[in-house]
Structures are given as C-alpha cells and as structure tokens.
Design a protein around this nucleic acid. Sequence first.
DNA 1: CTCATTTCTTAACTTAAGTGAACGTACCTA
DNA 2: TAGGTACGTTCACTTAAGTTAAGAAATGAG
Lengths: 192, 192
Amino acid sequence: MENILFDFISKYITLTEDEKNVLVSLNLFRSAKKGTILLKEGQHSKESYFVLKGCIRSYYLIDGEEKTTAFYTEMDALTPHFVINKTPSEYFISCVEDSILTVSNSDMEAEVNSKFPKFELMCRKLSEELLAQQRIDFDEFKTSSPEQRYLNLLQSRPDLIQRVPQHQLASYLGIKPQSLSRLRARILEKKS
Amino acid sequence: MENILFDFISKYITLTEDEKNVLVSLNLFRSAKKGTILLKEGQHSKESYFVLKGCIRSYYLIDGEEKTTAFYTEMDALTPHFVINKTPSEYFISCVEDSILTVSNSDMEAEVNSKFPKFELMCRKLSEELLAQQRIDFDEFKTSSPEQRYLNLLQSRPDLIQRVPQHQLASYLGIKPQSLSRLRARILEKKS
DNA sequence: CTCATTTCTTAACTTAAGTGAACGTACCTA
DNA sequence: TAGGTACGTTCACTTAAGTTAAGAAATGAG
C-alpha cells in the first residue's frame, strides 16, 4: 500500500530509505467505509487526503440539495481550500466507495518540511500542478455545454461514470439527474 | 510603480533593500496598450504577469468565437497553466485596458530563486493561495445559475462590470451577450 | 464632422435544462 | 416475505438560454 504513495512522491522528488521510514512512522494510513463523512460543513479541519484506493467526493449542501464539485480517485490529492479566508469549511467530503487514504494535517506537514526541506519543493510543484490542472478543468467547464461536458468526462474519466451514482454525476456536471438521463438518451439517439 | 509590487510581495515574505534592488535591476516592468496581445494560441511562452495597473484577460478561440475565462486587474498574478502537458498554449492573453505589468519568465524566476531561497517559499504560498481561490471560484460557478453568477460578480468585483465590454463579460459568465442583456433586464424588472 | 465599424439591446423563435410527478427496480430491513 | 427507501428513467409542462435578425448607440479613423 505504501508503494502507491511512494510512486506518487517519486514523480516530484527522490526519497531515501530513511525518509520513507519517517513517513511510514507517521501513521498516515486510514481506511474508510463507503458513506463515511470525512469533513462536515462548519468544521475547521486542515486535513489533507491522498487517495490510495477508492473514491471520495466533495460537495456543498445548498437549500437541502447536494452539489458535488469534485471526485478524487486513485493517486489524487485533496487539499482543503479555505486556506485564504480561514473560515470554517462550507462543504463536505465523503467516501463514494470503501477507500484507503493517507491523512495528514498541517502540523505533520510542518514537521516533515522541517526535517526534509525537499518536501517544500514537492509541495510547491504539486500545488503548481494542481493549480494548472484546476484552471484547465475550469476553462473546459466554462467553455462547454452540459452535453459536451458529459462527453468529455466519458473520454477523460470513463471509470467515474461506472463508479459514481448518477445524481452525483449530474450535479458534478452542473445539471439535474433528470437532465442527465435525457441527455444520455439524446446522445444514444444521435448515434443510431 | 515598484511599490505596488513590493506591497504585494510583502504579503508573503519580507524583502531587504538589497533584494528589492535586485528585483528592480531585472527590468521587469512593461506597459502595454489596450488590445495588445501578450500571448497567442500556439505560442509556447512561460511568461508570468503581474498587473500593476489596468486589466488583462485570457480567452480561447473556439469555432471563431472568443471565450473569456479570466480577468486580471490590479494586484492579480497570472501564471500560464500549461505546466503539465507542456503543449503550446491553447488560449490568448490580451489587454482590456492600457496596462502596466511586470513580466517574468521561468529563467528569471530560477535565477531569483537561487539567489534568494525565500522566493521559493513565496511561490509555494502564492500558488497554494491561487489554487484555493481557483477552487472556490470554480465551485461557485458550478453551483450557481448565470443570473446568480452575475449577481455574485456585481458583489465581488463591481468594477469589472464597468471596465469590461459586455460581450466579454457574458462569455466569462458562460452565456451569450444577448442572454446577458436579457438577464440584466429581468433583474431590473424584479427590483421594481 | 462624417462614415464605417463595433457593441449593445430588443424581439421572435428554437432548443435544452428545470420542475413536479409517476413508475419501475434494486436494495434494505423488519 | 412484505414494506419502505433510494435511485434512475420517463413524461408533460415551465423557464431560461441559444439563435437569428434588426436597429440603436457608442467608438474610431480619416
């Protein structure tokens, strides 16, 4: 299990055996059942997650309705995003499937950063990369229709469509479940 | 003019006079007329911009139509986002108004980072902050209708609505100019 | 100042998403 | 096994955005 984490880290920096051991000793690993809520609206957690296996999602609860904004699957990193305003979280994080994660908080990160300065470098590279990807995703969302967004998702993350309930997918695409059903029917009709 | 830049930097790290002088000696400052295109689709520039005065925007050209994805005004930093795929830019950057900018490329950044390691820290903090803000903006976009997005923009960046042509604003909101006109008329009607 | 171009608004019509309701299926659980 | 709940699909209807076109207003160049 650790190997997935080390494979991920090795994309950014090279670790010695000693450094790997320090990481393992931190007891980062946690498994969580489908449906487990990792973060509730209003909590002020600074936990970061890295998905080793499974799928987690972030969502807002607006007028009693869940609005899913992101899915994180194997090798995805989720850092909470209320760094700026420092107000409590306005969103939830929960497990779509039984999952195995690493969980770290800012204290642990500070500790590791001070012991191994190259972690600082990894953090910078990672957040730059996440920022770039986030911008690309946002641009793509803004410049396409719900139908195009669905077709793009079919290309880029076909597994999600199988793994995730339709109503969560729909709100991720910015539409209602009924519209997703209709849209899928429309696409099938076009093909024939 | 330099002071705006130093004020911005001081939010992240503290600079000595020597360090400030090095920055000034780099000749970062450039002014650009309204309409100037700073980056064209297909170019492979690694320039970063920081807006001291004026307004610049990024946009895609899709089926002959401009799709504006972001506006950057005073104190905003724009880092190009094809860090990952390393393919040429798929979007344009141009000046909405006569603007004064600082322009830096990755070579210059590497030079400054090696001379003053604390710049590395600033870059990390900045990209973490930008990532957080980007996520918040994306979430807000996804969870609201065009009308709500317009009302939110009216709250959060009222200056944009004055400074920016309507058709650019419309595509920034993800709709057509005609729909923005109609939507504004609808809002006015509701108020009365 | 005038002409041409661009930008913005309005209107009529089309298309697609939102809404509310009904129905079938699968999955729990008592 | 029976009843309940959650989920997905379908339908009819409503609402809002896309499209096409026309005209008014602002901008810019000569």
